[in-house]
Design a binder for these strands. Structure first.
Lengths: 186, 186
DNA sequence: AGCACGCGTTCGTCAAACCGAACAAACCGA
DNA sequence: TCGGTTTGTTCGGTTTGACGAACGCGTGCT
């Protein structure tokens, strides 16, 4: 696994400005809440300077975002991995294989669910936390799911991932459908 | 969702020392690889000082660990949730239910796998990263798994979680067994 | 128009992060 | 036992991040 060789100078600048106007507050206000000088913040958002951990941490708290969102670069609809596809890791001992479906976004919080549905009823989900991501692996049955605009159909072993912060749905196509759902929020 | 109010001064010190001797290199060597003065590193590991992001980043790269492992605090036998057990969230619309199996440890990295096994062969796993945790939901078939000392048997829909940093194993009991595996490392 | 307020940037000062060198202690082979 | 190496810590000097004040600009109120 390669580790980011890229210096995060510009990333931080971008992240700060992005997160700040997402919060809809002024530079002055943010500096005040974080307890740092606005001059410092100004320079940071300009991409000059190399903040101390303490400073950046204070900003993370004031913005209400996990520290790491400020330093890691952002990420990018429905991605599907069909059963048997995807990069496989085979054991030396036969009869075992594992497929990496989604590498952990370093600081996401992931809740693991088992989901059971019957055909007919449609589970419509309101969009939740911004930048949350859903992962689904169908265990048995068939289901149609995804963002309203991009529904996909999955069978046993199929995997799909899509943003959770847009309207989306789950719908079983055959009786006794069950799936594993991982909800990932930043 | 509460955001870490804790200043990460001591955490960084601990993380640095931990990760360094995990890598099995000397302070001097690490400082050299990271391109920083060893005096600086010495002080950081002593818990004095408040490193700049650039400095800490360089250390992360040199250690081969994601940046955030250095700043976020760390986390902590076999827990089983049988199919149909566990806290259930029912939809207003019937025919949908979800069970929370494991709330996300705030800053864990979780990789999602699909695992297929056939009976006979046993998948023995060397212990990996300290404090890593494994989660398994059996989709079809039956399997026996867990730390060598605490094996449990799971059927479809059953869930188990256990530490990944001790020797453990996976073994299919019937043909065509497949499961979803979530590997969580801090 | 005139003034007051909030915005973000720029400038000079100070503390501190970072550096390089010098240091004692532990270790190892001759 | 004694040099040579490597360990990690400590000590001045330099660089630079953070601060507060002053600045220019735009807005809105009287």
């Amino acid at each position: 696994m390669a580790v980011d060789p890229a210096p995060p100078l510009a990333t931080i600048a971008a992240a700060l400005r992005r997160e700040r106007d997402r919060a809809g507050i002024s530079l002055t206000e943010l500096a005040r809440r974080a307890g740092i000088a606005k001059s410092t913040l100004s320079q940071l958002e300009s991409g000059v300077g190399n903040p101390s951990v303490e400073t950046l941490w204070a900003l993370g708290v004031a913005l209400g975002v996990p520290f790491s969102r400020l330093v890691e670069p952002p990420t990018a609809a429905v991605r599907v991995v069909r059963a048997g596809e995807g990069p496989r890791i085979r054991s030396e001992h036969a009869d075992f294989s594992a497929t990496l479906l989604a590498a952990g976004a370093p600081h996401a919080r992931r809740d693991v669910y088992v989901m059971e549905l019957e055909p007919g009823a449609v589970r419509v989900a309101e969009p939740h936390t911004p930048r949350s991501v859903e992962h689904v692996v169908v265990a048995t049955g068939r289901m149609r799911l995804g963002p309203e605009s991009d529904l996909v159909e999955l069978g046993p072993g199929d995997y799909a991932t899509f943003p959770g912060d847009t309207p989306h749905r789950y719908e079983a196509l055959v009786p006794g459908t069950f799936a594993v759902l991982v909800m990932e929020h930043p």
